[in-house]
Amino acid sequence: MLSRTADHLYWMARYIERAENMARMLEVTYRMSMVHNAAQSEAGLWVPLLRIADNYDEFIAAYDEISARNVLYHIALDEKNPSSIYSCLRAARDNAHAVRVAMSSEMWENINSLWLEFQQLDKRHLLESGLSEFCDWVKSRSHLFRGVTYGTMLRDDGFRFTRLGSFIERADDMARLLDVKYHLLLPSANDVGGAVDYYEWSALLRSASAYEAYLKVYRDAVTPLRVAELLVLRQDMPRSLHACMNELTTILDQLNGETGNECKRQAGEMHSRLHYGRMENIFRSGLHEFLEAFLMHNNRLGMEIQRTYLNAPKVDEPELMMDFKW
């Protein structure tokens, strides 16, 4: 298929997925803010959210105060913030608009009406009391789009590039979420079992739609190690890193053409880390270090996909020579 078409489909899916994950993170932080915690300042609660999206510095430059309202506005609605939910949905719709012929008409109508609905939202209500409602709306529109994609799109490379975008993005978002939350939560891990701690861990699980799954799988207290295991290594958990890598390796194998060997190699290497990894070992050498390496590898895989398929150079450009230690 046309490289540009694949590029738009891939980024359309990435932006939808990113919007969904921003909504998940926003909601979990919002819920945490409702649990009274004397040790936690308001800024301390919201800063990690800004760090996840890599836009702490921009935020500090643009706003005079780290308040709930400012952060909510920045993450949900700020047109100047390229990773706000507003910007993600707009970019998703723009990408879809550019290649509407490459998808089913139901998909196009779905994403177009998503964008039209978003513009109709009562923004002030959202900031004052409608945040949960808004986050639910973003999530359910994302689910709907995924569903209509899965249910109506021809199983050609267009479908595969769309899914590729979703899972590269999901892996990235999940790893960031875990990394930042562990930073925040682990200092108090020695008093596992405290009420606040329980709420925060379970909020993290809920943000990944993993709370009920956790209970089903472990039938036991919420502990950091198990939370990490569930979200990193369990392949039956659809938002875990392992599940994302399962999808990515499968999709890359199905793509037509002979040019993707380096992509497949990189994805396979990442996959085996997760497939054969043990949480105890990862914890021993540091979860943060592991997640950081995963993020770099995932990023490199994204660039390799971009180079091989989506930019499709006329002449062979050398592959990117980068390597990171795990």
Binding site: M1, L2, S3, R4, T5, A6, V99, R100, V101, D157, F161, L255, N256, G257, E258, T259, Y309, L310, A312, K314
Partner: peptide, 29 residues
């Protein structure tokens, strides 16, 4: 393009080589 089942291309998707026109696809020219 959709009704005919053909690719919708922009100028940037095509290039000329050896007196022929090619489009850039995920599987090569």
């Amino acid at each position: 393009a959709q009704q005919m089942g053909i690719e919708l291309v922009e100028g940037q998707d095509m290039f000329v080589k050896d007196d022929a026109v090619y489009m850039r696809t995920t599987e090569g020219p």
